[in-house]
């Protein structure tokens, strides 16, 4: 048996190593908020199945200032696609029929949206329009898992962003429903701060200066790492926490849970004042939990 697939896997591994070793270009890291950013698309529930197919989504969008976007700050557009062609084409819909590329009213987020019903409406519309494209399964009941795509487009006039969230639709209820990771505690410069899911900014009381790095720590509850099974067998989630800031540089953009810890360094500071910190915990299966904004004071250069 020739191992072309193996060779490809090796090449991918080699590329990952090379990327890790390569000199990084001087781009602004992903953890630094410079303009409009979508930090998370929070879905509830995280998984659907027949009889349990309504879902609500909300976006966690941050303005260039670093503060959460409020209604009126941005223009938002949500859409739903039950049959997407996948990542290679940016999660484009297999069909442009309105029932298949379903658009929510501008500014309105999916709330209690019956995704299964819309998928079936899409199938019906496709059938009525002359046939199903090959990418669309004719019978949903034959599909063990269908990744439903919710797309979120937002702009503040200067920057436009698009984001997608995948909500799996199972043929039957999963043995252990997926839940988002739970943040037990956030600690900034060694002190615990109050939980904050995109509410008003919480003052951490910490100052970032050249004298010392500022440690940011997110502690997840132990049961945030849920067991699950897929085609390759049983697994346990490995939650990851992404960190964001409007000033300074983190030593790493992300850290693995359950005790995710990074250092905010006094780098690339052009002026002093307030800065905002966020953290987003992910189970990498669609579950997201946001902490922030937290205010810190940045010493002037």
């Amino acid at each position: 048996m020739r191992a072309r697939s193996g060779a490809t896997a090796r090449a991918a591994a080699a590329m990952a190593v090379a990327a890790a070793l390569a000199c990084a270009a001087s781009f602004t890291p992903r953890s630094v908020i410079e303009n409009l950013r979508v930090l998370a698309l929070v879905a509830s529930p995280l998984e659907l199945w027949p009889g349990h197919s309504s879902v609500t989504l909300s976006a966690r969008t941050v303005l260039a200032s670093g503060l959460p976007a409020a209604a009126g700050d941005v223009q938002e557009q949500w859409s739903f696609c039950p049959f997407s062609v996948g990542a290679s084409v940016g999660y484009a819909c297999a069909s442009t029929l309105p029932a298949c590329d379903y658009r929510f009213p501008p500014g309105a987020a999916p709330a209690g949206f019956d995704a299964l019903a819309q998928a079936q409406a899409c199938l019906a519309a496709l059938g009525a329009s002359g046939g199903l494209p090959p990418t669309v399964p004719p019978d949903l009941s034959a599909v063990a898992r269908l990744d439903l795509v919710f797309r979120y487009a937002v702009t503040d006039g200067a920057t436009a962003r698009e984001a997608v969230q995948i909500v799996p639709l199972y043929r039957t209820a999963p043995a252990v429903p997926n839940l988002p990771p739970a943040i037990q505690q956030v600690r900034i410069c060694g002190a615990a701060v109050a939980a904050n899911d995109f509410g008003p900014a919480v003052d951490s009381g910490c100052t970032l200066s050249s004298a010392a790095d500022l440690e940011v720590e997110v502690i997840l509850t132990p049961d945030s790492a849920q067991p699950y099974a897929d085609a390759s067998g049983a697994h346990v989630e490995a939650p990851v926490v992404s960190f964001y800031t409007t000033a300074g540089r983190f030593d790493y953009d992300r850290a693995s849970g359950p005790d995710a810890k990074v250092k905010l360094e006094y780098k690339e500071i052009s002026r002093g004042g307030d800065a905002w910190l966020y953290a987003v915990a992910r189970d990498l299966r669609g579950g997201e939990t946001v902490a922030g904004p937290y205010r810190i004071t940045v010493a002037g250069p």
């Binding site: 979508v38 998370a40 999660y91 698009e162 995948i166 992910r282």
Partner: peptide
Amino acid sequence: TGAVYYAPTDVWVPLR
């Protein structure tokens, strides 16, 4: 030509 933010794993998917 652009990119879409893939929220489940915090990555950006290029549009080609």
